[in-house]
Design a protein around this nucleic acid. Structure first.
Lengths: 301, 301
DNA sequence: GCAAAAGTGTTAAACGTACACCCATGC
DNA sequence: GCATGGGTGTACGTTTAACACTTTTGC
C-alpha cells in the first residue's frame, strides 16, 4: 500500500483522506474481460437410424483491428469504471450473442506482463455455457464477425522427467478450431514442476495459427475446467435444452470428457439429477426415448 | 475493443499501430493482489497424554493508514507494471513473511465497483499454504504489524426458499479471527439463486468487525475453496512438515473440513498419498507413531 | 427382418463406513 | 493399572463397471 505514502494519513480523518485521494497519479494496467462461450451442436447425419453426433462449439470473433488483425479472438473488452467484472462480462455476452440469463462463471485471471503487445493488459476470463436452441440470434449468421467453431482438444504429448529434487510433467495440448473452411490450430504446453514441497504449473502457447493473443491457452484452460467440473457438478445441464433424452445428455458428457461411456452406468449415475417427464422424442428407426428435465439441487441440500 | 476506435488501424501495419498506441488516455481501475496465507498451529496442551489440538491460522496485517485505519486486512498491494500477477503475489508474500518457495494458487478476482472507498480497485486474490515450522521469520513476532489469527468458520444460518420459477438458498457464515486479545468477527451471506436454468451466486459482507474492505468475504471464499480442494487434491500436504504422523495429517483434514473423521477409514484413504519412513515420533503416554512423508503424484499419472 | 437406440437386470469388484480389537507408552 | 493414541482386521452396505438381454421403432 505504498501508493499512499506521500500523504500523512495520521493527521486526517478517513473522510478527509478519501477526499484528498488522487487515484490518477499512478500508471496502471488495463483490465479486460474475455469470454469463453461454449455450446453443443448437432452434426448432420446421413444414416436415418443414427443419432446426430454432437460437437463442442466455441464462439470466436475475427479481429478487425491491430494487433492480430484478421485473426480470431475470444469476445471481450475493457472493463468500464462503473461496472463490476461480472457486469462487464455479461455486457460483452449480450452485445456478442444477444443472450442474457445464461450460466457464467469466472475462470481465471491472466496477468503476464507481455500478453498484449499494445500495453499491459490483465484479463479476467469467464466461461459461459448455453444450449444452442435457446440462442435467438445465432452468432455466425448475422452481420457481426462472430462465428461458432467446432472445438477439438487432445493431448499430443506427455513427458515425465525425474530430477534429483522432484519431478516435471509436461503435456502438449493440441487445440483445433474449425468453422467451414476456417481452420485454427494451437499447441499449448502445460508444465507441472514438483520441486520439494511446491507444485508450480505453467502454461504457455507454443504455436498459434490464427488465434490472437494468448487466447489459445485460455481456451485450453477452459476445457480443462469444463472437464473436471462436469464430473462433480451440474454444469453440463446448462448446455442442454429444457427437455432432453438421456442419450443426448450422455453425448454431451462424452464430447466434454473425450471418451465413451457405458449407457447403463451413465443412466444410473445421473438418475438423481433428472426428472422424468411423460413426453417422448419421436425417434427414427428405433424405440422412442423418454424426455427428461433437469432437477436442480443446491450445494447445501 | 472500442478503446482503439480513434485510430484508423487499417492504414497501418501492426508495427506502426503499436508505435502509435497511447495507453495512457483512458481511465482504468487499479489492480491489487491480496493474499490468503494459511497455516496450521498446535495449541498448548496440559494433559501429557493428549495430542496438542491444531488450529487453522490466517495472516493479517494491521492497517496503519486510511481507509480502515487500525483494522486488519489481508496482506497485499498494487500490481506493478513490470510484474505478473503471480510475481506480485510472491513479492508480497516474501516481504510479509520472508518465505518464498511455498504453495500458492489463484483464488478469485474481486471486481465490485465500490469495494474500495479510495477508487476503483480490482483485486486478484491468491491463497498460499505453509507449514508453520518452515517459517523462518514467524510473522507476529517481528516488528511488522502482521499477526497470525486463529480462524473459525461456521454456518450460522441456512435458509431455503421456494419460488414459482426456482429456488433460493441462503447461508450466513460466521468468520471469527482471534489473536491473543484481538477478536475480529464477520458475517458473510452467500446467496444461491436458481432461476430457470441459471444459477447465480452472490456473496456479501453483512457485518464486519475489525476486518478491512471486503476481506471477510475473500476469507470465507478461501476456506470454502480449501474445504472442497482438500477432498480431491494433495493440497493438505502443503500445510504439513516433511515428516508427520498420520494422526497429525488427520487433524489437519479435520480442522479444514470442520468435522471428525474415523481414523481407520482415513488411513486407508490417504495410504496411496504417503510413504512410510523408518522413523518414529517419540510419543508421550501412548504408543510411538511412525512418521510419513508425502508421495507426490501428478494429475496425469 | 434389421439396425439402431432405449431401457432393465445381473454379477463381481471396488470402495466407504462403522466398529471391534490389540499394541505401546508414560505416569 | 489406565488413559491415550497407534494400528489392523472384519463385516456390511453402497457404488461402479461390464456385459447380457429385451423392447420399440422406421425403413
Amino acid at each position: 500500500m505504498t501508493e499512499l505514502s506521500k500523504y500523512d494519513p495520521h493527521d486526517m480523518t478517513e473522510e478527509q483522506f478519501l477526499a484528498a485521494y488522487d487515484a490518477s497519479q499512478y500508471e496502471r494496467p488495463s483490465v479486460t474481460v474475455d469470454m469463453l462461450l461454449f455450446t453443443v451442436m448437432d452434426q448432420l447425419q446421413h444414416n436415418y437410424r443414427k443419432l446426430p453426433e454432437k460437437t463442442l462449439q466455441l464462439l470466436l470473433i475475427q479481429r478487425g483491428e491491430h494487433p492480430f488483425i484478421g485473426q480470431w479472438a475470444l469476445p471481450g473488452g475493457f472493463v468500464g469504471m462503473d461496472e463490476s467484472l461480472e457486469e462487464a462480462a455479461r455486457r460483452e455476452l449480450k452485445t456478442e450473442t444477444n443472450v442474457d440469463q445464461i450460466y457464467m462463471e469466472q475462470l481465471y485471471t491472466w496477468g503476464d506482463v507481455a500478453r498484449d503487445p499494445r500495453t499491459r493488459v490483465i484479463s479476467c476470463a469467464y466461461m459461459a455455457l448455453v444450449d444452442h436452441d435457446s440462442l435467438e440470434v445465432q452468432a455466425g449468421d448475422d452481420a457481426a464477425d462472430a462465428r461458432w467453431f467446432e472445438l477439438d482438444y487432445s493431448v499430443a504429448q506427455e513427458t515425465r522427467t525425474n530430477q534429483p529434487e522432484g519431478c516435471t510433467w509436461e503435456q502438449v495440448i493440441d487445440v483445433t478450431l474449425k468453422h467451414k473452411d476456417i481452420r485454427l490450430m494451437a499447441k499449448v504446453k502445460v508444465t507441472e514442476i514438483l520441486k520439494g514441497k511446491t507444485i508450480e504449473i505453467k502454461r504457455e502457447v507454443m504455436e498459434s495459427q490464427g488465434i490472437a493473443f494468448d487466447h489459445a491457452k485460455i481456451i485450453a484452460y477452459g476445457i480443462e475446467r469444463l472437464r473436471s467440473k462436469i464430473e462433480y457438478t451440474d454444469i453440463a445441464f446448462h448446455l442442454m435444452p429444457s427437455l432432453f433424452t438421456l442419450s443426448e445428455l450422455q453425448q454431451v458428457y462424452e464430447i466434454i470428457l473425450g471418451k465413451e461411456l457405458l449407457a447403463a452406468a451413465f443412466r444410473r449415475k445421473i438418475a438423481d439429477l433428472v426428472d422424468e417427464t411423460n413426453e417422448y422424442r419421436k425417434a427414427a428407426g428405433h424405440r422412442p426415448s423418454k424426455l427428461y428435465r433437469f432437477k436442480p439441487r443446491s450445494r447445501f441440500t
